[in-house]
Design a protein around this nucleic acid. Structure first.
Length: 419
DNA sequence: TCTGGGGTCCTAGGACCC
DNA sequence: TCTGGGGTCCTAGGACCC
């Protein structure tokens, strides 16, 4: 049975949330600013019509906003998170399988349901009635095509908020009208490479040899081409998201030029990251520190990062700050005007998965654990790739590191192409 | 059996997303 | 003066191992 995915996306989500709680904003141009009010991260259609770009720095658009009566709000992520939860509750009455892709987008599995397009229209109405949030819905046999459909639904008023790309006829008609830069997963760098070989529309990309796509854009590009052809490579991810990393990064209000100032900044970020970590009930095995100079400034550019490894997974503030300081000192160099820095916690584990004991080389249990690892290696193989004839290629990796002070085993499965 | 070439780990960095 | 922050995934190269 061919699959049907729906991608539902909230229009100007942060602005729409602000309007729900302040109806006087209805019909007026509204923008929401990033943390520290640095730049615009959400715009209503009225604000877009005034020429305010996504990511436009506030200091450049302030005069325009004042002159044209644009309402600018600081962001309120607690409010948006709560509204997002309510929108997803409404989705639950239309599908059992839902992947919450981001704060304002969810994929729903409409496979096997009668008249998906009508269902999408009903869903839009329900979400609007329950939450006040306007949405657009794209339908397609793969996630990439559902995303493409969603983009068309947003851009074309005559579609009335729903675009259906589940039929070959609709794809043949509409994909030539979708620019390559608007295909999900094609960013600036890929656009340049594709245009060089004459690929300008989603239809052009669909016709590209998957091997060429792979050599040009890695395995990601190959999956893209296949998905545009209706071959499923990315199924819904219904596992509850377990965070893989936690970041705290900030642009400085004034450039940092001395080590003590940088140590203070990274210590603060490490502390905040530790708070987030504990809120998630997790432990981190690595902490990464990075710093770089401004993209916009003259002068020597520098971007560095360094990783410090914990003796064992921890969420302890003192451990994290100590490790962050160690990494900061290691990568520090004088003579640069650092504009931004951050810390990223990596290799997160829940306490239940964390090693219970340290296994030293002299530990009497070591032979037993080695034997267990051998067994896993024989059972699953290492780096095994099943050939593509079956339509399924999976790479298995077993990582069991006996040299690190903490004993860990991990089995991860990397789907390359899943038909 | 095979002593070198392939597997794994670690790190850095690029690209893309919302 | 002032140009976001928080994520994921993929690749490559050196060190190390047997």
């Amino acid at each position: 049975m061919s699959r049907v995915f729906a991608l539902s996306d909230c229009n100007s989500f942060y602005c729409s949330c602000e309007r729900v709680f302040d109806p006087s904003l209805e019909g007026r141009p509204v923008i929401v600013l990033s943390n520290n009010d640095g730049c615009a991260v959400a715009r209503t259609p009225e604000a877009k019509a005034l020429g305010i770009e996504m990511g436009a720095p506030w200091f450049k658009i302030r005069d325009l906003c004042h002159a044209k009566g644009v309402v600018a709000r600081s962001s309120n992520y607690v409010l948006y998170g709560d509204m997002s939860r309510r929108v997803n509750e409404a989705y639950q009455t239309f599908a059992d399988d839902i992947e919450v892709y981001s704060i304002d987008e969810s994929f729903l599995d409409f496979t096997g349901m009668p008249d998906p397009e009508q269902r999408a229209r009903d869903m839009r109405r329900t979400v609007r009635r329950w939450t006040g949030i306007p949405t657009c819905v794209g339908l397609g046999p793969t996630r990439v095509l559902a995303k493409a459909a969603n983009h068309l639904a947003k851009k074309r008023p005559e579609l009335d908020g729903v675009c259906d790309l589940t039929t070959a006829e609709a794809r043949d008609r509409l994909l030539p009208q979708l620019e390559i830069k608007d295909v999900w997963g094609v960013g600036r760098a890929s656009v340049a490479k594709l245009q060089e070989i004459g690929v300008h529309t989603a239809a052009d990309l669909r016709a590209l040899d998957p091997r060429v796509a792979r050599s040009l854009l890695t395995v990601v590009g190959e999956r893209l081409v296949r998905e545009l052809n209706g071959v499923l490579c990315n199924d819904l991810d219904l596992t509850p998201p377990s965070r893989k990393g936690i970041a705290v990064t900030r642009s400085f209000s004034q450039v940092v030029t001395t080590l003590p100032a940088m140590l203070q900044a990274t210590a603060v970020y490490a502390t905040r990251a530790g708070e987030k970590l504990r809120r998630h009930g997790m432990l981190a095995a690595h902490i990464q520190v990075f710093m770089h100079t401004s993209r916009f400034a003259d002068g020597p550019a520098r971007s560095v990062s360094g990783i410090a490894r914990m003796r064992e997974p921890t969420s302890d503030t003192l451990d994290l700050v100590r490790a962050a300081s160690e990494a900061t000192r290691r990568i520090w160099a004088d003579g640069f005007r650092y504009a931004k820095a951050g810390v990223i916690l990596d290799d997160l584990v829940t306490p239940a998965d964390a090693p219970r004991a340290l296994i030293e080389p002299t530990d009497p249990r070591r032979p037993e654990l080695m034997a267990a690892m051998d067994h896993l290696n024989r059972r699953f193989g290492r780096g095994t790739v099943f050939p593509a004839q079956t339509g399924v290629m999976r790479a298995w990796t077993l990582r069991a590191d006996m040299r690190s002070p903490a004993y860990t085993t991990r089995l991860s499965e990397t789907p390359v192409l899943a038909a």
